[in-house]
């Protein structure tokens, strides 16, 4: 490489220590290189292995698996449509709810909060990002579920029952609505912490310049900070979406794990991840197992696309690596 060490040592020195050091250099380089190659091999192996296990299902159902709705273990007919739609629906709504709130927290923590509050609330937000999803799911099933069933459900149905989203009252606390709320709570801290870091990276010069021109604080945020951080914010939201897409446990706990192709949030649902988690142990046939792996392939593809999109945008920003 281009390191100074590459320049040859004087002969006397080189002969005395050359052999051992050459050996040391080569070993460390190859051992660490092996680990690095191992990482690349691992990700390749994951993709290959999941595809390989899904092969029987891919061979029988082909690409039409994606838009077929049946999931029937008796007739051995499988399709992913219900789970795919529910995954995108529930994740999309959670992101829609979480993004503005998370960005508001980021703005508050970077611009508006007084110094002392900043540290305390800032670490509270980071702490929340570390909560295990199974704990959130526990809260979702035992605390949030009954509230959705008895309070939110009837109330939203009374007020907004004319929309397709709240057309019926929930028959239990396990609904897609509960899942949306749990996922929102899960991704707000992650997205908020990244947005705060992004806002803190805006150079003070251009902020002060904007204020100096007579802009109000809000105009400065809208005209300078948001455009400056736009790409970063989009990828922060995408990273949150990636987390929500692949979340299996918390969603399994609260969504009811029965698929319906409906916009009604008070029906039960089932996402790609939660179907895999819920049906794995009960899988009756090889084809069902392969079909669950096929769901895994779809899930992997979606989350890789989302994460790649986030990475491509994030390249240009030096976001602290936290997700």
């Amino acid at each position: 490489m281009d390191d100074p060490i590459a320049t040859p040592l004087p002969d006397s020195l080189a002969s005395r220590r050359g052999l051992r050091d050459r050996f040391g250099d080569t070993s460390l380089r190859s051992i660490s290189g092996l680990a690095a190659v191992g990482v690349i091999a691992l990700i390749t192996l994951i993709i290959y292995e999941v595809l390989d296990q899904a092969r029987p299902s891919i061979r029988i159902f082909g690409i039409s698996f994606i838009w077929h709705q049946t999931w029937n273990a008796v007739t051995n007919q499988y399709g992913a449509l219900d789970f795919l739609v529910a995954t995108l629906y529930v994740t999309g709504l959670a992101v829609l709810l979480a993004a503005p709130v998370a960005i508001a927290i980021g703005l508050y923590l970077s611009e508006l909060a007084p110094g002392g509050v900043r540290g305390v609330v800032g670490s509270l937000v980071e702490m929340l990002a570390a909560i295990p999803s199974v704990v959130l799911g526990l809260w979702g099933i035992l605390v949030l579920g009954p509230v959705v069933h008895n309070e939110f459900g009837p109330w939203l149905n009374d007020v907004l029952g004319w929309t397709p989203f709240f057309a019926t009252r929930p028959i239990s606390g396990s609904t897609m609505f509960t899942a949306v709320l749990v996922l929102t709570i899960m991704i707000v801290p992650i997205t908020a912490a990244i947005s705060r870091d992004l806002f803190l990276q805006v150079p003070p010069d251009i902020k002060e310049g904007a204020i100096g021109l007579g802009l109000t604080r809000w105009e400065m945020v809208r005209g300078v900070m948001l455009p400056y951080t736009r790409g970063g914010l989009i990828s922060a939201v995408l990273l949150g979406a990636g987390r929500a897409l692949g979340e299996a446990i918390a969603v399994t706990q609260v969504i009811g794990t029965t698929a319906h192709l409906t916009a009604n949030l008070f029906e039960t649902g089932d996402t790609l991840a939660s179907r895999i988690a819920a049906q794995y142990q009960a899988a009756a046939s090889n084809l069902q197992v392969a079909s669950l792996f096929y769901l895994g392939v779809i899930l992997l593809a979606i989350s890789l696309i989302v994460n790649f999109a986030a990475l491509l945008i994030v390249r240009r920003y030096d976001i602290a690596q936290r997700v």
């Binding site: 660490s32 690095a36 691992l42 990700i43 692949g246 299996a248 991840a273 790649f308 990475l311």
Partner: peptide
């Protein structure tokens, strides 16, 4: 410490991709 720019970028990319794999997929893998 060792990788040139190209290699380093590929390994970092692999790490980012690995980080984006849902934990349930790691489970079935």
């Amino acid at each position: 410490e060792f990788g040139g720019n190209r290699v380093a970028r590929v390994v970092k990319l692999a790490l980012d991709v690995l980080n984006g794999v849902p934990s349930i997929v790691v489970g079935i893998f």
